[in-house]
Write a protein that binds this DNA or RNA. Structure first.
Length: 916
RNA sequence: GGGAGCAUAGCUCAGCUGGUUCAGAGCAUCUGCCUUACAAGCAGAGGGUCAGGGGUUCGAAUCCCUUUGCUCCCACCA
């Protein structure tokens, strides 16, 4: 075949991907082989491929392809996630653009829109993955909201409810007033913000001018006095009429309608006079008690805290401890509710502005300070501040799950790569909180709870069942509800948290929830490797481990490989706003999928971020080109079967056999340790430097000369092996060449070819001897360069024989150095360019081209270095404690270094002698 | 506030159980080559006080302490 001199990925990638699909090479069915399974971290169904996906899926594909080539039954299951909040937000936004409000639609109408959207945009991301070469078993493509996965979720919910692990409770949740949904703590992003701290006056509920509770020496501040919060004695305030008041600092004056107490620290000397009293909430005029709790920071503000149990998480805890009333003053959209009594219907932010004015007017505002505050925002609606809100929610008790999920990670039954994330995992699981699993969304799995009609104000009654029919049966069994009809059951409106389906992924993909003893789950589960980011350890990884043990009694995966975040070369996170995120498909078009994959592989080690630079793609493309051209070279060799195998080729093969043994072992070792980047780098250098740079040059026949069949055969064998090693990393180019090389009858694709095996350990003596050859060749090249001698001008090489002269490679030395004669000599040649490799002295006759002074200087420098080196070795060896405590091997090694250095020094001195 | 991690060449990073000439690789830079596989290439070269300080050890980039700088996670002082 005639090959172009540049490799063009675009022409071949689609062809081979289509071929792999047509030949069904990625499809897996249970059989007698050992399974190797990966489940994909499901991308959002309507998402687009970004650089993070490239990294993550490149790594998974490397693992899967390699396993497949190791004779395992490899199965990589793809799928997508319904991503309830993100997808619903997108649909709401799209509808809004068409002038449709979600609140105007019925649930069914909205879901129709959502499904239309999903069907239209869904799965694009999976198609994009094919461009990368991902060898997923597409026949198994799943969706978290398809039938099996949906039923699994509902079944699991009912199971947990029946086990008593699910409960319903009023909880302070992070409320997104725009999406009108509860968010988990993990979905709230805190941002530093410039805001104000408002100091409000809370008058004491008593007769004017009272001194009740004041100590001797109390500092009385008037409204105009400066206030120092660090004062260690009592402080109280009086207005012009002599009425006493306390000052409360707050960032949220609009919540005072919900105040049901004021709290002080019992140890706060400033505020002891307030103990046991009541105060009047400004403007609202409600009398609330002063409670004492050590939660209050004495140093903050005035040491007085207003307590609003309905609208602050900490206040809620205080309210529970001190049995306070809870007044919820907000509607779901964060406007003031009837219960607020004032500003009803106004938005919280508008109320803040207004109430500050009103407070000032009523002379109830002491002062306003600038304040740096952290405000929680919704991960999905970046401009929407989260409102703490009390809601009836569904919760999953987590202690049980923490107990079953912690040990297997800590004792390495499930291995984390890198292991440092075990600590993170441990921290979370040992301080676990119950999981709020309900979301006020429509797009998702609807909670299978059905409420029974109850009298106004009575406690709610509900049943949990997989279907309305079953729910009805359960309801009828409740005394007083015998005659209930299906229509009277009110299905819970809320959907489940997306992660409540994701945590089942390794189980539900093989239908292990609905049909726990089926052939597939029994075969593929536990899966082998999970590749994902450390940011979802809690959301996903921990919970999959919990689910795996809960429903199957076995780990969901054996290894977790953590990827880092893909950043730009300046170290910034890639984001749409910054516009620093290249489109991966553009990069693939420009550099080829293999080039793209190499870029990802070159720059990542487990758990570390990737500083992405387009130059890496270029490097990847260049490597593809290098492979291509190496193949072009051997492809154009003519065979002459009558030809004897040249000596140089024999020697090269002797050496390269050992190189392959050593490198393959190293690559295998790296891969076993999940050092994927290192394994690839190893391979890169093996191909580029050792194979192309040295081996091919050593066996290459002269221009337009034929080659002998033994050498060609062996070279093609190496090439085949290298392609197999490279295939998991660079699937397309390796297939293209492999198909042309056709090294193995009956194997239709390199995809299913076997990885090379190592028959024995490499002979390190041969490798060490050849290292001397490389050094010698380099030295000869340096002589040429220094003396300006062209490569094609043949030279003579003389040497003084000793045990470090690699005589067994003399043909290679002659060929690589373009040496016409190699001769052992006894006399030094003062007119020759001289150098030393290890201890062997070499001379290249130069006939007067020698600069004696320069040579002497160079030798002198070398002498100084080696004498210093010898001195440091001798220092060690003369240290008795070193001799007695260091292992024998190390001491022996120092002795060897001593001998080498002495020989080297002798050689240098001899050469200097010869020059003079 | 709690926890974890990082700091090695201009850049991105290896350096695994402390010990081989251990101070490395790739990229970038510089020099010389358009040598018939490859200029997307070849042959060479320069470049680091292993963040600072202290300790343990016969021996430290590696282990311990400490200072400095950076990153991430968790918590969320109104």
């Amino acid at each position: 075949m005639q090959l172009a001199d540049k490799y063009s990925p675009e022409q071949i990638e689609q062809k081979w991907y289509d071929f792999w699909i047509a030949e069904n090479l990625f499809h897996s069915e249970p059989d007698a082989r050992e399974p190797y399974t990966i489940v994909i971290p499901p991308p959002n169904v309507t998402g687009m491929l970004h650089m993070g996906h490239m990294l993550n899926n490149t790594l998974q594909d490397v693992l899967v392809r390699r396993a497949r080539m190791q004779g395992k039954n490899a199965c990589w299951v793809p799928g997508t996630d319904h991503a309830s909040i993100a997808t619903e937000a997108k649909v709401v936004k799209k509808l809004a653009e068409q002038g449709i409000k979600k609140s105007d639609l019925t649930r069914e109408e909205f879901l129709k829109h959502a499904w239309d959207w999903t069907n239209e945009h869904g799965g694009i991301i999976l198609k994009q993955l094919r461009k990368l070469g991902a060898s997923c078993d597409w026949e198994r493509t799943a969706f978290t909201m398809d039938e099996i996965r949906s039923k699994s979720v509902i079944r699991v919910f009912c199971d947990l409810y029946n086990k008593g692990l699910i409960y319903r409770g009023l909880r302070m949740v992070n409320w997104d007033p725009k999406a009108q949904t509860a968010l988990s703590n993990e979905e709230v992003i805190y941002r530093e913000e410039k805001s104000k701290l408002y100091y409000l006056k809370y008058y004491v509920d008593e007769a004017a001018g009272s001194t009740d509770g004041e100590e001797e020496g109390a500092v009385v501040l008037n409204a105009t006095d400066a206030f120092d919060p660090t004062v260690k004695h009592q402080i109280l305030h009086r207005d012009a009429e002599g009425r006493r008041y306390a000052v409360v600092a707050t960032t949220r004056p609009e919540t005072i309608m919900g105040d049901t107490a004021m709290c002080i620290n019992p140890k706060d000397p400033k505020n002891t006079w307030l103990k046991g009293k009541s105060v009047i909430v400004p403007l609202v005029n409600r009398v609330v008690p002063i409670i004492e709790d050590r939660y209050v920071e004495i140093e903050f503000g005035t040491g007085c805290l207003k307590v609003t149990p309905a609208h602050d998480v900490n206040d809620y805890m205080l309210g529970k401890t001190h049995n306070l009333e809870t007044i919820d003053i907000f509607n779901a959209d964060a406007t003031i509710s009837e219960a607020g009594g004032m500003y009803v219907g106004m938005d919280r932010m508008d109320v803040r502005k207004q109430i500050v004015k009103d407070l000032a007017e009523a002379n109830l505002l002491e002062k306003v300070e600038d304040y740096d505050n952290k405000v929680g925002y919704s991960e999905r609606n970046a401009d929407t501040a989260v409102e703490p809100r009390l809601c009836m929610q569904w919760f999953l008790r987590m202690q049980h799950f923490a107990d079953i999920a912690l040990p297997p990670v800590m004792n390495d039954e499930i291995k984390f790569h890198p292991a440092k994330y075990k600590t993170t995992y441990n921290n979370w699981l040992t301080n676990i909180q119950d999981w709020c699993i309900s979301r006020q969304l429509w797009w998702g799995h609807r909670i299978p709870a059905y409420f029974l009609p109850t009298a106004e104000g009575a406690e709610e009654k509900f049943v949990v069942a997989e279907s309305r029919e079953e729910a009805l049966a359960l309801a009828k069994a409740i005394p007083g509800y015998e005659g209930i009809t299906a229509e009277e059951l009110r299905h819970d409106e809320d959907a489940l948290d997306t992660w409540f389906s994701s945590w089942l992924w390794p189980l539900s993909l093989f239908n292990g929830i609905l049909d726990p003893d089926n052939k597939e789950i029994n075969y593929y589960y536990s899966t082998d490797d999970l590749v994902t980011g450390p940011d979802i350890i809690f959301f996903w990884i921990a919970r999959m481990i919990m689910a795996g043990y809960e429903w199957r009694g076995a780990k969901p995966f054996k290894n977790v490989y953590f990827t880092g975040i893909v950043r730009d070369k300046l170290g910034r996170k890639m984001s749409k706003q910054l516009g620093n995120s290249p489109d991966p498909l553009d990069l693939i078009a420009k550099y080829g999928a293999d080039g793209m994959r190499v870029a990802m592989l070159m720059s990542t080690s487990a758990g570390n971020d990737v500083m992405f630079d387009e130059a890496l793609c270029e490097q990847g493309r260049n490597f593809g080109n290098k492979i291509w051209n190496a193949y072009r070279l051997i492809n154009m060799w003519e065979v002459d079967t009558t030809l004897e195998q040249p000596e140089a080729a024999k020697e090269a093969i002797t050496w390269f056999d050992e190189v392959m043994r050593e490198r393959i072992a190293r690559i295998n070792h790296d891969m076993e340790q999940y050092r994927i980047s290192e394994a690839f780098t190893e391979l890169y250098r093996l191909f580029w430097d050792d194979f192309s740079g040295w081996y091919l040059e050593m066996v290459k026949p002269a221009y337009q000369c034929p080659a002998d069949s033994k050498t060609i055969e062996r070279t093609k064998h190496y090439f085949d092996q290298l392609l197999r090693l490279l295939h998991p990393f660079m699937p397309f180019i390796t297939e293209e060449i492999w198909q042309d090389l056709k090294p193995e009858e009956g194997v239709k694709s390199i995809v299913v070819a076997q990885q090379p095996q190592v028959d024995r350990e490499a002979d390190t003596t041969i490798l060490a001897r050849f290292a001397l050859v490389e050094e010698l060749i380099t030295a000869i090249r340096n002589v040429r360069k220094q003396k300006n001698i062209a490569q094609k001008e043949a030279l003579t090489l003389n040497y003084i024989a000793d045990e470090n002269y690699p005589a067994e490679f003399s043909a290679v030395i002659a060929k690589m150095g373009n040496i016409k004669a190699i001769e052992a000599v006894v006399e030094k040649d003062a007119t020759a360019a001289a150098f030393i490799v290890k201890t062997t002295q070499y001379f290249v006759p130069m006939e007067g081209k020698i600069d004696k002074e320069a040579e002497l200087k160079k030798l002198g420098d070398d002498l100084t270095y080696y004498e210093g080196f010898l001195a440091s070795v001798m220092k060690k060896l003369s240290n008795e404690r070193f001799i007695s405590s260091a292992p024998e091997k190390v001491v022996a090694n120092e002795r060897a270094k001593q001998a080498d250095a002495e020989a080297k020094i002798a050689a240098i001195k001899a050469q200097m002698e010869a020059l003079k």
